[in-house]
Design a binder for these strands. Structure first.
Lengths: 363, 363
DNA sequence: CGACCCATCTAAATCGTTTCAGTAGTGTAC
DNA sequence: GTACACTACTGAAACGATTTAGATGGGTCG
């Protein structure tokens, strides 16, 4: 009766109050054909009036499924919603998950707090873009649940979704080379979780912990070296985080260089937007004074001034595939995604031929 | 042994394999002080070698808590990640949730599928921006769990987070009036879930199902009427969805009107960006030919050309408050948020005085 | 009339934990 | 030598549902 009643009403309470067995009450909810319509109606009604609602934990325990899939992304939940790339991925994943009538449990994986992974009431995991050496993956594997990894090196027995980051990065670099650029800089995503932001030595460039970062860096390098450039001379700025502000820091640093690069390869669109801001602050025109290429092709790229030339990766598809693979794994059906999802160059307004003789800031 | 083993190893298996009681194994995990360090170590080790990991459902059932909070937003999970406003809210909420060491369960509330709410293994709910008459809220209340409503009319006994939408909208309209605009149009968010998009009659304007929409509309109206304008003469376009494309449709329709409005009040920044696109397509300059005011102040507003004049609402704070209130409710501590969170006008580059004698499209 | 079937309902086991209330056994204090 | 405290462990009862294997009683069929 009282709304404030502490003890939750259980199925047993409903049964008792009607003088029927718990099994019958359960059947009233889950198997209407197992009892007479009249009794069922009476049960449902008293259940309602008693304020009964079944306990999902108990039901899940008995039935052997939790009714949700777990998603692991960044350390902090915030980033899951702050990063537009993650957002698009989640949209795709979310679509599949909700079609399967499941919920989506976002699991923050804080340092020293793997317990949350262990405690997550889920039927499977999607592990998205976490550092390769993260202990988290071990905790996930220990759960022995159906699991799909995304942007992660292959793990025996686990379905995976990966994108042709290498090819995409190479196309980006080739595009600049074809336009005639030779002084090219790279604004890279972070190599370690504790990145500080700054120019990265060759040595530091060899320790990236994210598969996507490794592959994109390799792609840039491969194209530039094929064109005869010396990679050791290519300035590579490593951001501290994939944020616009950090991209701006990197952009400003690049603009200070002399000779100044005529083009920048940015490892994410976010970072490229940061470079835009840096240019605005320094009065550098894009693409006249500086060409900029992004990566990811988030929707906003089409709306900036100028629209951003970037590498498209099929983020929505990526999420859809992750979802499909996970559902198949949960259902025990065999399903695999062979090969990499494609990337492609989208030329917009932020790239152009380098101006003749330009090399110093023009004010 | 075998990774493919069907039957999960349970705590009982571990106990049996060591000849100790299940209680002791449980203690090894949860109460190290209850047994000798040597035995504990032995238990943990065999547990690991047996591939044991505790069942969260069973643990939750016994302990009486689920370890997650449920979040209800739009019908479709997609929108939760597609809408930047929701994203910022979730960032705030996520921060509190993860500090409390909980997971965040996104619950899609599909039509006829309230069951997901009933099945969600959570310790509490945050109900964010759902239609006032949605049956979902009943399902949530039936769970009798700690619940916080956001952007929703007050419900007896439930903590709530609301924003001064009315005041914000009024400021937006007043800003335009002060600049000298008299022919002002409104591009409104949808009034019902099945909105088609189109100009809204006065009658239709009276049925909005979202609290925020009601209040913003009232705010616009209040300011315009106070300035002596006849609200019945104010064109109000209702979008079908809060998407850029829908805003564009509305914008195009507004630009067709004659006399053409000199300013548009947009109920969201998304919609305002749509109007930007419409103007680009029609060669209308902002703010010279048309002033545009948005609502929400998402970060992108500062980066568009021109930067968008808009109403700031504290989205992150909203999420933080929702989180705090929910945590307090779960812990049984009393905590309330009195009053509305403030909104404020942020003047950027999309508004200006109307040009003399302008009234027709200029091409 | 006996056999069989059907619809309706129930008793009891089960899911995998945690926790309460003990039980030994050892050491300490008086 | 008794009382007491403490450590290390265990048995069994929860937690709240679902499910399997019947029980019961009536109706149908040959």
């Amino acid at each position: 009766m009282s709304v404030k009643a502490k003890g939750k009403t259980s199925l047993k309470d409903v049964a008792r109050s009607l003088g029927v067995s718990p099994a019958t009450v359960s059947n009233a909810f889950n198997r209407p054909d197992q009892l007479s319509p009249e009794l069922r109606e009476r049960i449902l009604q008293t259940a309602r009036s008693l304020g009964y609602s079944p306990d999902p934990l108990a039901r899940g325990l008995r039935r052997g499924r939790a009714g949700a899939v777990g998603v692991l992304y960044a350390d902090r939940l915030r980033y899951t919603f702050a990063d537009p790339v993650a957002g698009l991925f989640m949209q795709g994943l979310g679509q599949v998950v909700e079609e399967a009538n499941l919920g989506m449990l976002l699991v923050p994986k804080r340092i020293n707090q793997e317990s949350l992974v262990a405690q997550a009431a889920v039927d499977g995991f999607v592990v998205y873009s976490i550092p390769n050496n993260s202990p988290t993956i071990q905790t996930v594997l220990a759960r022995r649940l159906p699991t799909v990894v995304v942007d992660y090196p292959p793990i025996e027995g686990l379905p995976a979704v990966n994108v042709d980051d290498f090819g995409g990065a190479r196309q980006a670099a080739q595009h600049l080379l074809e336009l005639g650029h030779r002084r090219i800089g790279v604004v890279s995503l972070e190599y370690t979780v504790d990145a500080k932001g700054g120019f990265a030595s060759l040595e530091r460039q060899s320790i990236p912990q994210h598969t996507a970062v490794v592959n994109r860096l390799d792609g840039y390098r491969s194209a530039l070296e094929a064109a005869g450039l010396d990679w050791a001379q290519v300035p590579v700025w490593e951001v501290a985080e994939n944020l616009i502000e950090e991209g701006e820091r990197g952009g400003l640093a690049m603009l200070e260089l002399s000779p100044r690069p005529t083009a920048l390869l940015c490892m994410s669109d976010q970072v490229a937007f940061g470079v835009y801001q840096a240019c605005r602050a320094r009065g550098i025109r894009i693409p006249e004074d500086l060409s900029v290429v992004g990566f990811d092709d988030i929707p906003e790229t089409a709306r900036t001034a100028p629209p951003l030339t970037t590498i498209h990766q099929p983020l929505l598809d990526k999420g859809l595939w992750a979802g499909r693979l996970l559902m198949a794994a949960i259902r025990g059906e065999p399903l695999e995604l062979s090969g990499l999802l494609p990337t492609r160059l989208v030329v917009r307004g932020s790239t152009a031929r380098p101006e003749e003789g330009v090399g110093q800031p023009n004010r």
